[in-house]
């Protein structure tokens, strides 16, 4: 479904991605692990076309979306991105946050969406918070709203950029539960994450990034129990 070939990206002199190759099949969950600055976030922002790549190909549904000059808007509608810092729109209620993009992009009126949106809020335990504003919600609740906001566009793939890193420890579980439920439903997902236990439990594939390259990839068992590379072993011994 998604196939990255030799992705290169530099910010000025800083070469962040140095030739990433990655295959993601439909319904797969891929976890990107690695130290801060290893390029995980940049890679996700590149796939969502927020930070266009300098070189390489991103094949999505038979189209190379890394093609310079391609209109990013229709692609972004199909590839959702959830941020570490939630980035909810503070001047809109939770429901309005969720309904804005379907309303403007797909032309769905508020009344046409309301039922489906209420179902999503109920499903993720936020039915009673649907008309609250972001500053009235806890971090975990805000992040769940942000996930619902991305889901409401019915994307083919969802990208998660360290979505639990800004949360207090006791709020992490409620957000991971949402991911678990999406996993059961067969959503295709790529996660940049520091939640090793979660990656081990649910990922189809784990990639260890180091210095803008995928140094090692494999099943969770391969990466966590029998890493081939010394650097992977070092990293895991620091975080586990």
């Amino acid at each position: 479904m998604l196939s990255l070939k030799n992705i290169q990206k530099a910010f000025g002199d800083h070469h962040v991605l140095r030739g990433i190759d990655l295959e993601v099949a439909k319904g797969e969950m891929v976890c990107l692990i690695g130290a801060s600055g290893s390029g995980k976030s940049t890679l996700l922002r590149a796939v969502n076309l927020l930070d266009p790549v300098d070189d390489g190909e991103i094949w999505f549904d038979g189209v190379d979306i890394a093609e310079p000059g391609l209109d990013p808007q229709p692609i972004r509608q199909r590839i959702g991105l959830v941020f570490q810092s939630f980035n909810l729109f503070p001047h809109m209620s939770a429901a309005e946050n969720v309904m804005l993009a379907p309303r403007r992009v797909k032309g769905l009126s508020r009344t046409a969406q309301r039922g489906r949106v209420e179902e999503l809020f109920d499903r993720f335990g936020l039915g009673h918070r649907i008309d609250h504003y972001p500053d009235q919600l806890s971090g975990g609740q805000q992040q769940r709203v942000a996930i619902i906001r991305a889901l409401a566009m019915q994307p083919d793939i969802l990208l998660f950029d360290e979505i639990t890193s800004a949360l207090d420890p006791e709020l992490v579980a409620e957000v991971l539960d949402v991911l678990r439920s999406l996993r059961e439903e067969g959503m295709t997902m790529i996660l940049a994450t520091h939640e090793m236990g979660f990656a081990r439990e649910l990922a189809d594939k784990v990639c260890f990034l180091e210095g803008g390259r995928i140094l090692e990839e494999g099943t969770p068992a391969q990466i966590f129990d029998a890493p081939r590379e010394e650097r992977t072993r070092q990293f895991l011994s620091q975080v586990l």
Partner: peptide, 25 residues
């Protein structure tokens, strides 16, 4: 800038991002 990132990531146009997300704030 994270506000416009969030809006654009959802597939909103530049104009809609300005009108519905940036300008009201």
């Amino acid at each position: 800038k994270s506000q416009s990132s969030a809006a654009l990531s959802l597939g909103l146009s530049n104009a809609d991002t300005m009108r519905y997300v940036i300008l009201p704030q």
